[in-house]
Amino acid sequence: MDIKRRSFLKGIAGAGAGVAATPLISGTALARESYKLQDEHVGMLYDNTRCVGCKSCEVACKRANNLPVEPDEALGIYDAPRDLSEKTMNIIKMYKDEDETAYIKRQCMHCVDPSCVSGCPVSALNKQPNGIVTWDADACCGCRYCEMNCPFNIPKYEYNEFYGKIVKCEMCINTNLPKHGQPACTEACPNEAVIFGKTKALLAEAKRRIKESPHLYVNQVYGEKEGGGTSVLYLTKAAVPFSKLGLPSLPDYSQASASESIQHTLYQGLIAPIVIYAGLAAIAFKNRSGDKEE
């Protein structure tokens, strides 16, 4: 009897360990690939060789999406956000060293396989069929896991509200996009430094520009592969690499796919938990009488 119980226990422990180790050893069983860019996904292409840093896009964004100004500290009269925040979801930042200046436009990248969507416990963040990643006020519980896991630090919770919202770029999906057919920032840009379109077409355009003037650009379209790809793509001038613009260098798979591969292996169909539960219950049932005499 004693021996039987032990071997049973061993069997279960073995099964448990096996389940836990599968994704790490074989890497295949239930591995979930990074999602792929779809034909209907829309996005933006920003090319800092064309940007003059006029910030028209920032102003247009705030106007279209009804965002408050963030006055500068010195005079308190100009809108001068220093970084993305709960009041600013699109910003132009500048990199400067002795001989080079370069701009970078930051907003949600609308990742092809977003961490924020994968992590959100209550489906408040969703990737729409057109690829735009949206936020749903009715669903969100304000856990701020999205703030923690977004590789680009995009979602911003309103810490100074008693019941704050998550603020992030939604490519004007409810504001400028239905009205004018494109986001406010691309519409406002005087130089076509940032343009709107189907992401696949934008990627082709970006590659065309690099091919046409290879001396002008770093030979990389940021967002083609980074973190499994993003719907917003960047080009940068040859002298200033992306790392200097504050963009992280990410692997070419999405963290969401890596994380969900492990989750799915452990919980697919709840089979492993149910088997282990049944085993534990059986053992506890067997041990039940002996326990009382103690």
């Binding site: 994968s118 959100c120 416990p121 209550v122 489906s123 408040a124 009715d138 669903a139 969100c140 519980c141 304000g142 856990c143 701020r144 919770y157 309103e158 810490y159 019941y163 704050g164 919202k165 969900e260 989750q263 799915h264 919980y267």
Partner: peptide
């Protein structure tokens, strides 16, 4: 931050099992 939304953990429509 949006504590009422915690109820959504138990509403099938909002459950995000991934």
């Amino acid at each position: 931050g949006r504590y009422i939304g915690l109820l959504n953990f138990f509403i099938p429509k909002y459950m995000q099992t991934n």
